[in-house]
Design a protein around this nucleic acid. Structure first.
Lengths: 355, 355
DNA sequence: CTGAAAGCGCTTACAG
DNA sequence: CTGAAAGCGCTTACAG
């Protein structure tokens, strides 16, 4: 055992006004109070007198002091939450981001994004990074993880999932729309208009049908086809999320004989690709082929798309998710599962009734 | 002065195998070495024997140890870089993200995103957050800041700007394409095809014409119009980045009499909106109105868009930016300004030659 | 209500 | 080549 170096005098390094960034020590020194007091004021903790508070606040302002999240994270909150988005190109996720932002706007929480580009490995890497950074919580959008892995993440960090169905989960919250019902509404819309050969274009799956958005939509599609006596016309194709893969799948669908009368794509973003291939194949939409998407993203309104779509509000989901996460961070233990019921297929040119 | 509590024994808390996350102390204890040694192995610092290295590596693996960036940030590198994107909806920025990701894939750097949604206040907030988090560096895409503010950021953190022209900047690097030239090529393409009344639809500006992408493109448009003897047909409209604002602007453009023969939009994303309004107005593209965008994003290929566009590679820009930033972080002091020369307008249906 | 001290998990001189 | 110790900037019991 070595002797202690110098007697630990507890000497406070009363940092002079260097050009370096101000720390909590500088604020305390300027205000003539302890760093503990500054910390309390900053966090709105109980037990500070108005005078002390105002002294601290004015030195904070004078020094332009901003607490470092890294230092905070080592002891308590970092006031940052992580948002994992699966794909930056799909406009639906922009809606979710907007919802999250608007919920967090007036709070002291900052949002940092990670994008997994639909790659399972990147998804894990991004989540690890967020946990590593000791963020206060994460919102996972459309994760491609099995319930076990989800639970493992929730074990490490407060978590809310969007677009992941585990209504029985206890350690994390979810915010979803009723994807089964949404798909059924689409089929109904098409069937009522007299279309029978309705194909469903889905994402390539990997055995997570129960929990994923895509799995639920596919189940809803199949159920609805049967309900409408169209079981023999059930046709599902799976494609990865690249233009090339989607185009190949659509071309394959259109080669079937007899050709489908309608294609229902699992998300608007893919439906736009369907419209493109149909046009290039010389088909008239909706006369030769009806096309319907899912999400009712803003782009559906573009006249050249005029895409019918099932209306779900990404903004609402994002808003709820952020709200739930903040509650979890603040200590709520009991799970909450937010589910939006869908009512409406917004009908545009791409699936207008046949003349 | 208070007496020291217990004599500081320097006792190492040889953390038992709790369920808590492993720290560098756990790794050191398991390997039977010092934490300093572990730290060195982790950072590939010089002066560690092969045996020590392998001992450490195996305990790291055994414990599943991952260093916390927050703790690292307090002393040195955090191995995280921040990417600021102005807008999540514009597909061009997805290209840049892909470029950044591919450059950083094989390195130990993590990317975290911030989105400013084209709001100056959010831009500042996101940059502050990245600096607060003590990230190792930032890439700012299409910042709306004046040179002074840019310099202030670069003063605090290694920085690279994409889509911001300050070729004389010394404290940060830039990666750009030649926006003036790009705009001139577009005008030339349209003028050669016999179109004279060529309007330019730009983003609302705020006196940063010299440095912004939009300002440069507008300058290029004006110069080219004069070069082609079309000065009297110069027509520029500014609109904020919302569908509503863009639609209003386009409608206004189309009301002019005589009506423009072509609309050149500052970015593809806006050009799609132009196509929509034109279609709704009953105009035939390109017969009644030619439309050209900028960026040549993937979506231009959709048959319903078939948008002609100037080809710049967002991926290349992102890749260069990431490369430059890592060099800066590693100590390069001298500035580098990467500029791509543009050659090509990719002509599609939206501006095909008149029959 | 207020403050001194310990400690979060790392890295960096520095000494051996 | 290796390790003990100081210190980064905060928060949290704890004592007064």
């Amino acid at each position: 055992m070595k002797p202690a170096p110098e007697p630990s005098t507890g000497r406070v390094t009363a940092a002079p006004a260097t050009s370096a960034r101000a720390t909590i020590n500088d604020v305390a020194a300027l205000a003539g109070v302890s760093v503990a007091a500054v910390s309390k004021v900053l966090r709105d903790a109980y037990g500070v007198s108005p005078e002390l508070r105002s002294k601290v606040q004015s030195s904070v302002a004078k020094l332009g002091y901003r607490p470092r999240p890294a230092a905070r994270a080592m002891r308590g909150r970092s006031y940052t939450i992580g948002l994992l988005l699966p794909d930056i190109r799909n406009p639906f996720f922009a809606d979710i981001l907007e919802g999250v932002n608007s919920a967090l706007e007036r709070t002291q929480y900052q949002t940092l994004l990670g994008i997994s580009q639909s790659a399972t490995s990147m998804e894990a890497a991004v989540i690890d990074a967020m946990v590593d950074w000791q963020m206060d919580g994460v919102i996972l959008v459309g994760p491609r993880m099995a319930p076990k892995e989800m639970a493992a993440v929730a074990d490490r960090i407060p978590m809310v999932a969007v677009g992941h169905h585990e209504p029985q989960a206890r350690t994390f919250d979810t915010a979803n729309n009723d994807d089964r019902m949404g798909a059924r509404l689409v089929v109904q819309h098409l069937a009522v208009a007299g279309r029978k050969r309705i194909a469903f274009l889905n994402l390539a799956v990997q055995g997570l049908d129960e929990v994923t958005v895509t799995g639920r939509r596919e189940a809803g599609y199949r159920a609805a086809m049967r309900e409408h006596g169209l079981a023999r016309h059930e046709l599902v194709l799976h494609a990865e999320q690249t233009p090339r893969e989607v185009q190949l799948a659509v071309k394959q669908l259109l080669k079937a004989s007899p050709r489908p009368e309608a294609i229902f794509a699992w998300t608007d973003f893919v439906a736009f690709e369907v419209l493109s291939v149909a046009r290039e194949a010389g088909l008239s939409v909706p006369a030769d082929l009806a096309v319907v998407g899912y999400d009712n993203t803003r782009d559906c309104d573009l006249a050249q798309h005029a895409l019918s779509s099932i209306d779900q509000s990404g903004q609402a989901l994002g808003l709820q998710a952020a709200r739930l996460l903040v509650e979890r961070i603040k200590g709520r233990e009991k799970e909450e599962h937010f589910l939006v019921t869908l009512r409406l297929v917004v009908v545009r040119g791409s699936s207008a009734a046949k003349a």
